[in-house]
Design a binder for these strands. Structure first.
Ligand SMILES: [Mn+2]
Ligand SMILES: [Mn+2]
Ligand SMILES: [Zn+2]
Ligand SMILES: [Zn+2]
Lengths: 142, 142
DNA sequence: ATTACGAATTAGAATAATTCCAAATTTCGG
DNA sequence: CCGAAATTTGGAATTATTCTAATTCGTAAT
């Protein structure tokens, strides 16, 4: 598992085995560092603005390229809420997203222990789920 | 409940009470008729193409306007899958959407009887859910 | 039926997120 | 270090959707 801690000294070639196949570049390292730093589900443009602080020459096209690479390699999760721009989440565990209508903040929500899809949905036999997305909006308690 | 049957003779002012407040126009009637005719979750552009057959002068802007009015008045449901264009669904009962990766077809999926959100998700006390969207992708059985 | 007024339609321009392009640069195995 | 292949980059292109402002329409009241 990648943590912010070991990101600091990450050099090309230092990536954990599950990232093999993804060539390491300064830009990808920076984009990943931004996403791990504040886990607030930033948009591509948010990431761009933050990455620019430490890497003033990075381009928005590169942000999109890096995000795509990280998502494809399952290092980062892409989150789509309604028609808004995509957001990016470093939490790889099973969870869904709740957007608080007051603050606009997006909260990770986990499933109760032992809940399985087939217990919830009326799916015909032989169905194979490759992708699931659950998103909520409303007032987030507490 | 609005059915295709009673759409045929629908005249301005004939709308059921729950649609009061929504002014009736030829265009809105046609857009609704299109969505009720084939329940295949068409995009705005699909609706445009179909509506044009019976109403050659209708504009795409009007399709968007009508869809927005119908969605706002809870006559039609807007469905967002990943980053694709919005689709529109006349099924107002509680359900979610499964996109078959082979055929591209979108299937309505219902929840098992008695399943409640709070049984599934770890939500903090006081949370109020105003909007929920569940979408799946994969191989749809049968 | 006629009128009056607010609402809806329309064509086209504008917007904005994302993707594409082709040239310059970088990575990394050998 | 070299070279092939991948990546970055700025800018243009794409595309779904929204906006604008002029025209037309629907409705409720006369
Ligand atoms: Mn996704
Ligand atoms: Mn929705
Ligand atoms: Zn998340
Ligand atoms: Zn549906």
């Amino acid at each position: 598992m990648i943590s912010l801690a070991n990101m600091k000294n990450l050099k090309p070639g230092d990536f954990p085995p599950e990232i093999k196949g993804l060539r390491m570049t300064r830009q990808r390292r920076e984009v990943l560092a931004v996403i791990l730093r504040d886990r607030d589900h930033p948009t591509a443009n948010d990431v761009f603005l933050r990455a620019q602080k430490r890497m003033p020459t990075i381009s928005l096209a590169t942000i999109y390229n890096c995000l795509e690479a990280l998502v494809t390699h399952n290092i980062v999760r892409q989150v789509n809420l309604e028609r808004e721009s995509s957001r990016y989440c470093p939490n790889l565990s099973d969870h869904c997203h709740f957007q608080d209508e007051k603050s606009g903040k997006i909260h990770d929500v986990v499933f109760k222990k032992g809940v399985k899809l087939e217990d919830i949905l009326e799916l015909p036999k032989g169905t194979e789920v490759s992708h699931l997305e659950i998103s909520l909006k409303g007032i987030f308690g507490k």
